[in-house]
Computed example of a mutant assay.
Amino acid sequence: MAIKPKLFKQMTKLIAGSMSAGRYDVRLAANDDEIQQAQKLRYQVLYKESGGRVTRDMLNSEREEDEWDDIAYHVVVVDTKDDEKVVGTMRLVSSEALAEGQRFYTEHAFDLSGLRAHYGKLLELSRACVSPAGRGGAILMLIWKYTMQFIEQNGYDVMLGCASFKGTDYHQHTEILSYLYTKHLATAELMPIPQPDVESVAIKSFLSEPGKGKERGKVPTMLRGYLKIGAHISDHAIIDPVFNTTFVAIYVDASYMFGSNHALVNKSIDH
């Protein structure tokens, strides 16, 4: 995939500098090569590791790419002691970058009319990946903190995306989905609604009895960060055989993130 020079120049004006932690730096991708490295990492993590449905094009290129990559901001974490290799990534898509009539990636599964009507400037987060050797440490922290800085500095009103759980048997995720439904459900006004042509299930149809905190222990690290800054989820889960996942829609109001709870943003994935 080739970056349009004019578009890329506009993108890089939004955020200057980078963050660092030890051997790792995080910033926006600087060139085509770094974006392609990010796409290779996405292919390895989201398809090969997770048992997703691989296409012939992916097998040939060993990259995962789609229509949103041309308009996205690609956050990358590079290893400064390993030839600037990309070891972590997150894709950010702004509502202002979408073409007329173009939808967010998330909108192929959910109708986001409520969020679009309520918020002026939206940012979709997707394709978060960390290389196997760097999980559970500084890489994820850098992606998170850099993305929060991006949202604050560029004046986004809400961030949105999907929270996924490996496997298409949603019964395996009963505890975590029940916890999210009970504690973090979106309001009716802003509720993401499943599109009619996707396979979905109402979470309330298989709610489990509240446990004693066991379900909280199963919350993935990145999702735990979202929840600590006020995330809300959809009342339906989508069954996705392409990625071999079950997922819900998620959104966070930026006014909560950067209001009286600003300290939570910096501490949300540290423990």
Rank of each mutant, 00 (worst) to 15 (best):
L125D: 02
M11T: 03
V198P: 02
F206N: 04
V265Y: 03
K145D: 15
L98D: 03
A29K: 00
L227E: 05
D235Q: 09
S94Y: 01
V26Y: 04
K4F: 08
T12V: 09
F258H: 08
D79C: 06
R116P: 02
Y226T: 08
P5I: 02
G211T: 06
D82Y: 02
V201Q: 04
V158I: 12
E34D: 08
E65Q: 12
G136K: 10
H171L: 15
A263C: 07
Y170M: 01
C129F: 06
N244I: 03
F165P: 03
G120R: 13
K121M: 07
V54P: 04
H171S: 09
T187Q: 09
R23D: 14
I15K: 10
D253N: 13
T147K: 07
M1N: 11
L59K: 13
F258K: 06
S205K: 09
K228E: 15
K166S: 14
V265H: 06
L7R: 14
A99N: 12
S20M: 13
T174H: 08
H232V: 08
G136N: 09
I233D: 00
K6P: 00
L123M: 13
A188S: 13
N154G: 06
D79V: 03
P194W: 05
A21I: 07
K4M: 11
V77D: 02
K267H: 11
R23K: 15
Q195M: 14
H271T: 09
E96M: 10
K6N: 14
A231N: 10
Q195A: 12
V252A: 10
D111K: 05
R103G: 06
Q39K: 06
P192M: 03
I151T: 15
S255H: 10
C129N: 05
D235A: 11
S208M: 09
G217D: 07
L112V: 04
M19A: 11
A99L: 14
V93C: 03
D79M: 03
V130L: 10
S50C: 11
K214S: 10
V78W: 00
R91K: 13
L177K: 01
G22M: 09
A237F: 02
E96N: 12
Y47N: 01
E62D: 04
Y119F: 15
A263T: 09
Q153F: 08
L112Q: 02
K145G: 07
P220H: 09
R224G: 15
T174D: 11
R23L: 08
L14E: 13
L160D: 02
A163C: 14
R216N: 06
P194C: 04
D33L: 11
P196Q: 09
V45C: 05
D235V: 00
H74Q: 15
I193L: 12
K40E: 13
V130H: 04
D33E: 14
H171M: 15
M11G: 05
S178C: 07
D157Q: 03
G114S: 05
E84K: 10
N154F: 09
V54L: 10
Y119N: 01
E96G: 04
H108Q: 13
T12Y: 00
Q36W: 07
Q102N: 08
T174M: 12
S113L: 06
V198T: 13
G217L: 07
L264P: 00
L122C: 08
M1F: 12
L227C: 09
R42S: 08
